[in-house]
């Protein structure tokens, strides 16, 4: 792993650790309100200070990871399972199945992802799980296409012929040799892109408001919106979530890139 990937992995590990910590901790976003200690700077009690309602910024930062972790993982699942399956089946078997699946993928891809997600939230309700599912659905064609291209070009290769000659069935060839051996980094890479995209979606919606995570549940997006424009406020109240968003997305991308390189080596 190169330096970028190591950095990315480290950041993601921290985010994951923060999420785990937030999930088991007894920090209560509601009870933490205390206007008497509003907008304090960093101190031993509050590592990143407090926001203008007196809530601890650092803890809210950790708690906010719950807002996108679940939906992000859901998106990856919703995207990978049908997406990979569709791409693999279309690539391997070809023919009318391929045409039908590729048509379906094209149709979904004709709607810009954000439009699809926005429509889904509007119609089905404004919660982050719908967001995750819609993001997954919107991304599935990209994943399917990538898998399709890989499998389609590999299926005529010698090692496949050799496997058949050995008497291995089609399904085993498909699922193990083609998908697992050759596609897992590909899928992993796309999963990371999708995860960072879901984070992007969630924070954007929560920042602009109207949709997304609502107070008092913290999200890096709504923390930013809440503290923005606070004069004489604690600057960390806004900068901490901004940095968190940027670093996490960057980490996902760096790590994903390294998966490409690993394959090339």
């Amino acid at each position: 792993m190169n330096a970028g990937a190591r950095f990315g992995a480290a950041v993601l590990a921290m985010v994951l650790a923060g999420w785990a910590l937030a999930s088991i901790s007894s920090y209560d976003v509601i009870a933490d309100v205390d206007p008497s200690r509003a907008s304090l700077g960093p101190s031993l009690d509050h590592w990143l200070g407090t926001d203008h309602l007196g809530r601890d910024v650092a803890w809210r930062l950790l708690k906010a990871s719950q807002a996108f972790m679940g939906p992000g993982l859901l998106a990856c699942t919703v995207s990978s399972l049908p997406g990979v399956a569709a791409g693999a089946l279309a690539g391997f078997f070809g023919g009318p199945i391929a045409y039908a699946l590729r048509y379906l993928a094209t149709v979904i891809a004709t709607l810009p992802r954000f439009v699809l997600v926005l429509l889904a939230i509007t119609i089905y309700g404004d919660n982050m799980w719908i967001l995750g599912a819609a993001a997954g659905l919107a991304y599935a064609p990209t994943l399917a296409e990538a898998v399709y291209n890989r499998i389609d070009s590999l299926k005529r290769d010698e090692f496949v012929l050799a496997a058949r000659a050995h008497g291995l069935g089609s399904w085993r060839i498909l699922w193990y040799h083609l998908l697992w051996i050759n596609c897992r980094y590909l899928v992993g890479r796309h999963a990371l892109y999708l995860f960072s995209y879901t984070l992007l979606l969630e924070t954007t919606l929560s920042y602009i408001g109207g949709f997304g995570v609502k107070e008092p549940t913290p999200s890096w997006g709504n923390m930013l919106a809440f503290e923005f424009g606070q004069r004489d406020g604690n600057p960390w109240g806004a900068w901490a979530p901004a940095l968190a968003i940027w670093l996490t997305i960057l980490a996902c991308n760096l790590l994903a890139n390294s998966l490409v390189e690993k394959r090339r080596a």
Binding site: A105, T106, A146
Partner: peptide, 11 residues
């Protein structure tokens, strides 16, 4: 196989 090419081509 060049996956980002595939990605770039879209569908």
């Amino acid at each position: 196989q060049n996956d980002t090419t595939a990605l770039a081509h879209g569908i």
